[in-house]
């Protein structure tokens, strides 16, 4: 074990949504993970996996009505879940910043980019006037926006998707946060622009020493970026490992299934794809057994008897009663 204290320590986080009709939904259920300073952690999952809800819960951005959040989210020594609203607002933006998937809806369409960036600087760093503008221009150029002084005067719709995402990252960086949470930051972007943004995030993490939580459905992004990866399915973590271990030896049938179903650019042509049967909506409720059981090729009878525990193995956590063997490549 390293001696570094975790920067973020999520313990047994659960989020339930009460609905007017129908049963309550456990969007996130007993999720625990840590993020150390300078570390890049990936939360991977498909729609309905709870990865985005997890990040919103950490940021305190879930709506209050109809939502119950349980567990602890320790940042330094503060539990973000019990922090008063104004303290949380201070931490958000100054210590923890977030970048969203859709840069257009995260920016105010009727306010110039410059004003939006300087606003953050004024609020959290108490910069004023020319100093704030100069700092804003520097930030934009730092995230690779050419001609920043002119760009500051422009409105979000005048920027391309990639530039908007850069502007958002600039805003997130304005206060040199110690933790950056990026929720599918490149999903709306083209692949060459995605490469630019990923490269930018890598650089920023290296230069500033900030920690990064990357939320994505794209295993390829995780493979090149994250130190530690947590795979989520239907609200729970099913497998966690360092990225090399995870990709070299996926143990959970879901992780293995995902890897086997994604076409690889470098695979020989005609290599068959092994899709996971069913869809992410064919889930079992965790109380009744493993949520992945209905789609799992390795299913045992015991899998549907009750929720499988998250076991800690050397260098790995795994929630499976019948994992892939360590040599097995993919489930057929």
């Amino acid at each position: 074990m390293t001696t570094t204290e975790p920067l973020l320590d999520v313990r047994d986080l659960s989020v339930t949504f009460a609905r007017k009709s129908g049963p309550t939904v456990h969007a996130v259920d007993g999720v625990s993970f840590t993020v150390r300073p300078g570390e890049t952690v990936g939360l991977v999952g498909e729609s309905g996996s709870g990865k985005s809800v997890t990040s919103l819960a950490v940021m305190g951005l879930l709506p209050r009505r109809g939502v119950r959040v349980g567990g602890q989210v320790l940042f330094d020594t503060d539990d973000l879940l019990t922090l008063p609203r104004d303290r949380m607002r201070d931490i958000r933006g100054r210590d923890i910043a977030m970048v969203f998937q859709d840069p257009m809806s995260s920016l105010n369409p009727v306010v110039p980019i410059g004003v939006q960036v300087t606003e953050v600087l004024e609020r959290h760093q108490r910069l004023r006037g020319d100093k704030a503008s100069a700092a804003a221009a520097e930030l934009l150029s730092r995230v690779g926006i050419p001609d920043p002084t002119r760009r500051l005067k422009e409105y979000p719709h005048q920027l391309s998707g990639g530039m908007r995402q850069r502007a958002l990252i600039a805003m997130a960086l304005a206060c040199q946060p110690r933790l950056l949470i990026a929720d599918e930051p490149t999903t709306a972007l083209d692949v060459t622009i995605q490469a630019q943004i990923i490269e930018l995030l890598k650089e920023l993490v290296q230069d500033t020493g900030a920690a990064l939580v990357m939320i994505t459905h794209d295993l390829g992004i995780v493979a090149g970026l994250c130190d530690t990866v947590h795979v989520m399915y239907s609200g729970r973590i099913v497998e966690s490992a360092g990225r090399r271990e995870l990709f070299a030896e996926p143990r959970h049938p879901y992780t293995g299934g995902l890897l086997a179903s994604v076409p690889r650019l470098d695979a020989p042509r005609g290599a068959p794809l092994h899709p996971i049967p069913g869809s992410p909506t064919d889930v079992l409720r965790w109380e009744r057994g493993c949520a992945f059981a209905p789609r799992c090729p390795n299913r045992l009878d015991a899998c549907t008897d009750g929720p499988p525990p998250l076991e800690t193995l050397p260098g790995r956590r795994l929630r499976c009663l019948n994992p892939l063997s360590e040599t097995e490549e993919v489930p057929a």
Binding site: R19, V25, A27, S47, G48, S52, L62, D183, V283
Partner: peptide, 10 residues
């Protein structure tokens, strides 16, 4: 965004 995930689970 979070809500669409909830929709999906239900």
């Amino acid at each position: 965004m979070s809500l669409s995930e909830i929709e999906a689970t239900t």
